[in-house]
Design a protein around this nucleic acid. Structure first.
Lengths: 339, 339
DNA sequence: TGCGGTTAGTTAAACGTTTAACCAAATATG
DNA sequence: CATATTTGGTTAAACGTTTAACTAACCGCA
């Protein structure tokens, strides 16, 4: 049959539609006998309940909204794309679908919210990356569970899947320290961003542990946002006032690539003259020369975790807030070297 | 009000719910007066029709399915990702959402179809890239419009958004010819794939136009699929039997990168010793050295076109088949040089 | 005046599920 | 043996829309 409904199944199995529904939901009050009869009819007709009808009465759509800014979606490095892919995979496991939407990074009063919220077309939402706090406020008014990924508003109790940035910052810095570097620069953009700030804190902590003093002149966190071009510019600034830097910890891979580009431009060899380490692990191994040492962030896994979390929040209907911290890992390639 | 329904609006505007619905659909039989009254109530209550309820009666879900193979989704080059992004953007314009799902590249009899098909949760679908023909057959049984992107089963009349691969193949080859190259190799994988085959035909056509003879020894199309590693291997084979090749046209960027890597390994300089051109334009400008000359495929635009097409097919309910050929463009960077 | 036509709106059925409330038959209990 | 309880199901209302069929009011015209 083209598109069988529950009625067709009921007729075929010679029971009421309620019985069919109860069988589908594994209700206990059905005898094994009838259950099997119904199940057979279901497979025979290749019946699948209609999402729309289900959604209407059960108030569950089976959809999860995925919100990120326009900018993040368009980024060339596949950071958020990978997270999105993780959510997609896990969504299948949970019989859910992901509705992706992008929003403007400057969201104003009066701007309309994602349509899937307004039309009650999602059971929960995942917000990936930094988004305007006004948007978060607006979204919180709807009674829909939210899971943040890689960013959360600092003031509130929320569910979040976050990277252990502090530890990552320490790992990167310690790696350079262990290679014997004494003058280690830190290059970051948008230090207001909690993630970047934590990476910076990791840097400071690692230096402290190694009994190395913090040198303001080795630090540049003035760039707007952590993109390649800003890594280039930051490197230019910092190297023009310091001639003796031997290693750079850039707050992410994009900036690290910019740093490397600048250093090549002024004739430096990497890693022979200067060691450079990044963060995120988003540039593929043979796309930059030398291959970049970095801190690997398990992007897919973050998406998976976020989907698991939102899925459980939706199902259990509990208002608990859970924080999941994903581990990072030092990946030593060829952009860092013993001094 | 938390989640106003059409009833609430009707009450507020002091009309029947039918009237509200008619206003929403811009039905002519409503006076300007009442229309305004209803519209006011709608904005006052911030009312938006429920997708589930709409879907149930109108048999339109407002969703479009996006199907691609697991492999393609996981590819590091953002080819299909970009197409997907294009569909997302255009979806917003058409008040649609995209439900993405991946399928196994070897689909067997008995494997279950994407859930969104079974649950009637999409109005149409976009199939991106090469997928098993058995799957296509199965999907065709459902009465849901399909638009193919970048691949279509050769035997059938279908709607498709395709790349002008033939022209692209000619452009790439002509570019090398114009630079004075005489011995131009072609490296391709999976020559059964219509796209790759067309690129190859473009190569042949361009040579013919330039009155250059086709040399079988300059051609390698034996690799399974067009990935970097296979580009490397193909280059190895072809250069071991030809010492005088001065230029290579690789059927896509991934293979071109592999070719470059091999050439570097055997000590060749690019483009001084050998010119290399790719196809697709998926490797970012500074991720390979030297930056790769290539044929640009407008990936986003393809997604946009595909969504436009499926959207119109869904709306007009016509069974027409339309083919959209998107233009390609020669992008000269630094991997090709005058002989 | 009476009738057909138009205009502007309402009524009610339908879409395909879920689930609380109900019920009949079988079984257990005192 | 009469009654309470359990078992295994059914009935019917509800979810929030859309839309065909209907109707009431008004208008124009012979």
């Amino acid at each position: 049959m083209a598109n069988p409904t529950i009625k067709d199944v009921a007729k075929a199995a010679n029971v009421s539609i309620a019985t069919v529904s109860l069988v589908i939901h594994n209700h206990k009050r059905i005898s094994m006998e009838t259950k099997q009869k119904v199940l057979d009819a279901i497979t025979a007709l290749n019946y699948h309940p209609s999402r729309s009808a289900r959604g209407l009465v059960s108030r569950k759509t089976g959809n999860i909204g995925f919100i990120l800014t326009h900018d993040h979606f368009l980024r060339t490095e596949p950071f958020y794309t990978q997270i999105f892919m993780g959510t997609e995979f896990e969504a299948r496991e949970n019989e859910l679908y992901v509705l992706l939407t992008t929003i403007d990074s400057n969201f104003h009063e009066g701007d309309s919210l994602p349509r899937f919220i307004l039309e009650r077309n999602v059971d929960g939402m995942i917000i990936a990356g930094k988004v305007p706090s006004l948007l978060i406020d607006k979204l919180s008014n709807y009674n829909i569970p939210i899971v943040f990924v890689d960013y959360s508003p600092s003031n509130k109790k929320v569910s979040i899947v976050a990277v252990d940035n502090l530890h990552g910052g320490m790992l990167a810095t310690q790696h350079l320290v262990e290679l014997g570097h004494k003058k280690i620069a830190f290059i970051g953009g948008d230090i207001e961003h909690p993630s970047i700030n934590d990476r910076f804190n990791g840097y400071k902590l690692a230096l402290e542990k190694a009994s190395m003093s913090l040198n303001e002149r080795l630090i540049n966190t003035e760039e707007d946002y952590p993109a390649r071009i800003n890594g280039y510019n930051a490197a230019k600034k910092i190297f023009s006032i310091n001639k003796d830097i031997s290693a750079v910890f850039a707050c992410n891979d994009a900036m690290a690539v910019g740093v490397i580009q600048y250093l090549k431009d002024i004739g430096k060899q990497i890693p022979n003259d200067i060691s450079v380490i990044g963060f995120d692990d988003v540039v593929s191994e043979n796309s930059v020369n030398p291959p970049l040492s970095t801190i690997r962030v398990p992007k897919m896994e973050m998406g998976v975790e976020a989907m698991r979390l939102i899925s459980s929040l939706v199902k259990d209907h509990k208002k608990i807030h859970k924080k999941i911290l994903v581990n990072v890992e030092l990946v030593v390639r060829q952009s860092t070297k013993k001094l």
